[in-house]
Design a protein around this nucleic acid. Sequence first.
DNA 1: ACCATATATCATAATGTCAGGATATGTCAA
DNA 2: TTGACATATCCTGACATTATGATATATGGT
Lengths: 108, 108
Amino acid sequence: MQKQPLPVSFMNQMADVLKVMGHGFRLRIVEFLDLHGPTPAHVLLAALGGAQGALSQHLSRLRLAGVIQAERRGKEVWFTIATPAAATLLNCMRQRMSPDAKTPRKSR
Amino acid sequence: MQKQPLPVSFMNQMADVLKVMGHGFRLRIVEFLDLHGPTPAHVLLAALGGAQGALSQHLSRLRLAGVIQAERRGKEVWFTIATPAAATLLNCMRQRMSPDAKTPRKSR
DNA sequence: ACCATATATCATAATGTCAGGATATGTCAA
DNA sequence: TTGACATATCCTGACATTATGATATATGGT
């Protein structure tokens, strides 16, 4: 299976996702959801710190980019990872963090 | 093997990489290098279009983030992907382009 | 030296992003 | 209704990013 250029429209879409995940705080939000599963916002706030308004805005950006999903349950809004791509990215990072991160690459 | 939170400093580092790749044009630069291997800038310019100065600046940002590497050979400067993480990201995207990949949905 | 090619840098203006604090909305219960 | 809690939105100033066009630097050939 030969590698082929991805469609430009898809690349732009993915660029938007990467851009949104390209922020330390948002990345930690996604990681938390990946580690703990669906979580209400106030738990995220307690776990990650920061101002409530800021958290809400970051969650909003992640949601608009399709990275996470929101669902209201009573007073709370529960957030979940909405795209496997996000979890995949985190797993890539975990591989790069492992002590033997020396990976033989089949390039080209 | 239990998943554990990644160090915050590492997360911030990765966020910087994601942020730099989170741009359609830069993403296409990296993809081209992944598909074709080391390439001089003027070939990238011919292949991707745009203004020369803009390309140079994007290459500079990618280089400063450690995503690509530059090497002068005579008049030309050849660029190469410098971190396997970049190629890994592209492979994630290719997987998501397969026909049965779930489409991220936006609510509201 | 000059010239052409290849690449980098500068300057500017428009736009986007960020953190912070204040305020608004929604939901439930008493 | 009121109050308490959970979340969203608004505002503002500081800062970053972007595209564009112009100019500068580097290299090799004549």
